[in-house]
Design a protein around this nucleic acid. Structure first.
Lengths: 313, 313
DNA sequence: TGAGGCCATAAGGCAGGGTTATGAGTGCTC
DNA sequence: GAGCACTCATAACCCTGCCTTATGGCCTCA
């Protein structure tokens, strides 16, 4: 069974995002009334929402006193679980907003798919917090297009992947992405004490992307030096499908480290070291040669540095 | 401004979780009708939901043909952003369910706060996927209570933190937690090339938990050997408040690595290495001495191993 | 003892989302 | 080429849920 397939719809017993948001506000402000005011609803509405939330949870989340409301221990746990949820929602929202913005917005960003998918949402949230007035637009494009639009003045900042910046652009590395071999926790490779050799990897049938996919090309080129790659075990059309197949034990897959970070953290997938093969590529911010990004573009560039610093070691 | 404070309520422009779930179902199954059937609603309802979702996004997410519906490129991006959101929701749901369960459920887990908060939700999701029939109950307790309840037969599996297992229990290390020094990205310590020394840390005023908190005790004891700790910069009552203060630049804080993992990944906080001080503690699964966990408890124990394997290096 | 904070309850209105019934378009099959 | 099976959209209707305002009880503090 695939981990991503939601067999049981969680919707029915899942609290509303806004209710969770309200719960956090109550926790932060110490009273239903204040939280209601902040949320722009009436106090009875907030009271009712918290009641339905508690009915849904099955246990009290708030201790109500005539001087305010504080979280119960269980309530604390729930808020701590709710926080990542709301953060993810915030990232989705920031992404949606950027995707929706008209192309005359103040900061026009062009990004490769990987950057747009895994890195930008968080940056956009931070940027929005820091500069609420700036409206950002986001277009997904390949390196060539990014370069063209930057040089034509149709974009303010770009993000590309590849070992060097496109011609005519200056760049700064903001993250590194590495092709990583992953298997399900049960797989023999997950129990290896010694790293895999490139030759072993080249000889092993893998769950692959379809012909013509960028990462597949890169991988094939690298494995060619070691007599590979073997005929694919399975060919799938998306990173998501690939991950799901690997999780369900279909076989080893090779995926961007950014794409599998969550799955590694949760233990759904296990990374397998490869001794003599590193498929590293730099993700870089780019802008027209000889210029310096200014204003919001400069701001965003600075933001990315915080991540870059952490990602390097 | 604190990163967690939701200044602007996102609720208004945030799609419903169930709509996102439905979007994923459409993507997976290739048609509105099939997705509707899976979700247990009528086809027109699904159609309407997708339309409101698209109206909310501001751009089309699906390409509808007489033979089915496929995601647009923007739709793919949205589903990829929605997936972590739904995963977080799933974890919250699993946590709620476990917290709600009666105490005569099949698998009774007792866990320390750290494990319950940061590790258990994901394990519970995986366990539920693997063994949908098992109902789990969760109680948060300290080591002594966990031991007592296990030995009294009132719990099936426990999780404690500390350098050794409580008396009378066998144990397996499932994760390690480390007290980590964190600062906001702008802080001078974030730009250091050499690790901090324990003496420097001991001399520095920190954002601290209130007196009597477990982690504060541990930290104080460790820094005492180096002439510290200095008088706190600020005293706060919860991990969350501590993190928010550190993010907003109030000063350095020392926090569980599990608590700050997300913030480090997103670049909101930066970890500062300390040369001659490691505050490592093992998080362990525990059960009565001489016995072997069986049934669902054994299952859960196995699950935790997948994480442990990854966490070790 | 009154003022002002807290929260809960009650009554009424609006709206979003659900349903069924139906229609239009495409492609497969006989 | 006619029928069928499948896609999705529209229309009419209903109902549940959530919001609002108005009110009341409780506690604390000046």
């Amino acid at each position: 069974m695939l981990s991503y397939a939601e067999a049981v719809p969680l919707s029915s017993r899942m609290p509303d995002l806004s209710s969770l948001e309200l719960l956090l506000a109550v926790a932060r402000l110490g009273s239903l009334g204040r939280a209601a005011r902040e949320a722009g609803i009436s106090q009875p509405a907030a009271s009712a929402r918290m009641h339905t939330l508690e009915r849904l949870a099955g246990f009290p989340l708030l201790e109500r006193t005539p001087r305010g409301s504080v979280l119960t221990p269980a309530g604390v746990l729930v808020t701590d679980w709710a926080r990542p949820l709301l953060e993810a929602a915030d990232e989705l929202d920031a992404g949606l907003t950027a995707l929706r913005e008209d192309h005359d917005s103040r900061l026009r960003v062009e990004a490769s798919l990987t950057v747009a998918e895994y890195l930008l949402p968080r940056w956009l949230v931070t940027l929005r917090d820091a500069r609420p007035g700036v409206s950002v637009s986001l277009r997904v494009a390949n390196s060539t297009d990014v370069a063209a639009r930057l040089l034509a003045g149709e974009a303010d900042l770009g993000f590309t992947e590849g070992s060097r910046a496109p011609r005519g652009l200056d760049s700064a590395v903001v993250a590194r992405d590495r092709l990583t071999v992953v298997v399900a926790p049960g797989h023999p490779w997950s129990r290896r004490r010694s790293p895999l050799t490139a030759a072993e990897l080249a000889a092993a049938p893998l769950v692959q992307r379809e012909q013509g996919s960028g990462t597949r090309e890169v991988l094939s080129a690298a494995l060619a030096a070691h007599g590979g790659p073997a005929a694919p075990l399975l060919e799938l059309a998306s990173t998501t499908a690939l991950k799901a197949a690997a999780v369900s034990g279909a076989g080893p897959a090779v995926l961007s480290s950014l794409a599998v970070a969550d799955d590694l953290a949760s233990g759904r997938l296990v990374a397998v070291e490869v001794a003599d093969l590193t498929l590293d590529r730099a993700l870089r911010a780019v802008w027209p040669h000889g210029t310096q990004p200014t204003g919001p573009a400069r701001e965003l560039l600075t933001l990315t540095r915080a991540t870059a610093r952490r990602t390097k070691p």
